[in-house]
Design a protein around this nucleic acid. Structure first.
Lengths: 363, 363
DNA sequence: TAGTGTCAGTGCATCGTTACACCGACGACG
DNA sequence: CGTCGTCGGTGTAACGATGCACTGACACTA
């Protein structure tokens, strides 16, 4: 059961290893049909599979795509990683998984390491405003696809971005709450020093102002000590936000736009700690539509990201850039998010419930 | 910025490449201290990093550990993958991610492919009773660590298993409900043709009988068409179970042991569909303690798996088997799960609520 | 002093694949 | 008929690391 090499195939097909190599690397124009068929048959018969290590050693590239996410422990990123793996498999690639924990330094180290290990395509899920920390690798030829981070003016030319249109996402979410009659709508985000978060916030602001309201009047909860929380802990953040925003019932909002579903869920949990009912006392809308959104009680209204499609796009941009239907380098794909209305948002008219007005202050 | 090779280091240190190789491969006894220091200095100065592809080509092994999970889209597996990556990083390894979708054939294909690509250590999260589908690779020398699947009598000798003690887990969960006074306790599992699930079921049965009750009197919901559902869909399964078990209120249980948290959450969602309140009308206990368990409303009582510890064990068994403190080959590590009481379980005495008795039948 | 052993370090073939440079044969063209 | 171009295919030197088999120097022993 020793390994079948290209030599074995060559021998079986009565050609030189070079020809087999030519066959494998799409230079079939260089040979007559009969030869091609013999090689093909030999490969099939011997069950030959090229040795990745040798290939990679020889030409410095690997068939692996690097995936750098903040943390697969977060259900959104877990789901995305799942979709990426499926898409990569379809293209014959493996996925090397890295968790950056949203640490720019880890991002850089991972990207450098992957590059040095021959990985030439990386899907980087970052939302840092600048790509300076990895630009030196890009300039050496790395195919970088950023996810969840639209292209920025100063990005290196070759970078492709796949993202949802966060601006319209934030707008859609906020408009939904406005249409339900809410006029005191908080934005809960943690730090927004990231391009996707600030875009969502902009969408929120635009919607508020378009409704003739003043953003300055709305509570904006932007985290504890800046960036103290990583990604899995988004829910902790939401929870903390709820406790803080509802400490004073007089000024508390009746509706909340959360930066993502995990934060929204944490917020709901915090509301519960304070004896408030989501979708009754307070309307909460999330972002992402993770599997848990539909499972929650009440099911969470949210803005869905089409992650399957996005994962496919990201992988195909990463591994087959330059092929027929691929995007131009430097382009940015912005997919349209979709509002999913469930039960965590309700008419403002129904919001002023007994429980809201008479609930005792928490200790 | 060309690659620094072992030759460059050798030249800089005034030794032969062989000596550098010796240095790198723990054969430092073969050289005098001064030489060692020179090599060390040269490596540091040039920033040398061994080329993985070349290494792998030469000796057929890679520094990568393969991780085969049912689906990283499932928050439990996502969290586990996260921990595995952290543990692997600490040991200088990368993690290659594969989703088996619980399909034995995909498991086999992935394992074979990883093996052929030089991966010599695989953490396989399977719960298939037999390892026959991968035993041929094991016999060639693969270091296989199974996770969430205790060793079975017919397993190949070299396999190490890391798992929680599912039997006591099931027992602890059930006992908790019994202690709350429940006597009609359902078991919701989907197919239990997997060793961990059947162990949990056994623990459940033991506890029921130890309480002087009869397992035959308890509802056991074991899935729709056997195995129709994958892993992410565990929640769908739970939801379906709820609708079915509570179709007839007369025989419906007052408490439920779910096979895992996702199923439990789905079950809660189903209960909600029927107008029932978890932790009030019905007590529900899960298994795993995923991050969402604490976030849920009501927070889910569950049996926690110590995944950080388990991931560390799995990785260290996979990559450094044979080292000092490692387990004997063929051993099985069973960690103790921990009951986490939250609010989805309640005293039976409090269970017979108005809403339970008078809720209208759903259409 | 010849013989044996140990120590520190090196030469070289090798892993499987690739692509450049080459080669022979045949056809066409001036 | 000689020459050139093209086609189909091959030889070979890498890519970078490894470890066996070896060597030269020195020490110790009989």
């Amino acid at each position: 059961m020793a390994r079948v090499t290209i030599q074995d195939v060559a021998q079986a097909a009565n050609v030189s290893p070079s020809s087999v190599s030519n066959f494998l690397n799409d230079r079939q124009d260089r040979m007559v049909a009969a030869t091609r068929d013999r090689i093909e048959a030999a490969i099939a018969e011997l069950g030959y599979r090229p040795n990745r290590a040798a290939r990679q050693l020889r030409n410095g590239k690997s068939q692996t795509v690097g995936l750098v996410v903040p943390s697969v422990g977060n259900p959104f990123w877990g789901a995305f990683a799942h979709e990426v793996e499926i898409a990569a498999l379809a293209l014959g690639c493996s996925v090397l998984l890295c968790n950056s924990e949203r640490d720019p330094d880890r991002e850089r180290r991972y990207v450098e390491e992957l590059w040095e290990d021959g990985v030439r395509s990386i899907i980087l899920c970052t939302s840092l405003p600048s790509l300076d920390h990895v630009s030196h690798v890009i300039s050496e030829g790395l195919r970088l696809v950023t996810f969840d981070r639209p292209a920025q003016p100063h990005d290196p030319e070759s970078v492709v971005s796949i993202s949802v249109d966060n601006n319209v996402g934030g707008h859609v979410a906020t408009t939904h709450l406005l249409e339900l009659g809410h006029t005191n709508i908080a934005f809960v985000s943690g730090s927004i020093r990231s391009v996707n978060r600030s875009a969502r916030y902009r969408g929120y602001c635009d919607a508020i102002e378009a409704a003739g309201l003043n953003v300055a009047d709305m509570p904006h909860w932007a985290g504890l000590e800046a960036d103290q929380f990583g990604d899995v802990e988004a829910s902790e953040l939401g929870r903390a936000a709820a406790l803080e925003l509802f400490a004073d019932r007089a000024t508390a909002p009746t509706a909340v736009v959360a930066i993502n579903d995990m934060t929204a869920l944490g917020f709901c949990r915090g509301l519960r700690d304070m004896g408030l009912k989501v979708g009754q006392d307070v309307s909460v809308i999330g972002f992402d539509d993770i599997i848990l959104a539909d499972l929650y009680d009440p099911p969470l209204t949210t803005v869905r990201q089409p992650i399957t499609r996005m994962a496919q796009l990201a992988v195909s941009e990463a591994v087959e850039r330059g092929s027929s239907e691929s995007t131009d380098p430097g382009s940015s794909v912005l997919l349209r998010p979709e509002l999913v209305v469930r039960e965590s948002t309700a008419l403002y008219a129904n919001t002023i419930s007994d429980s809201f007005l008479h609930v005792p202050a928490t200790p």
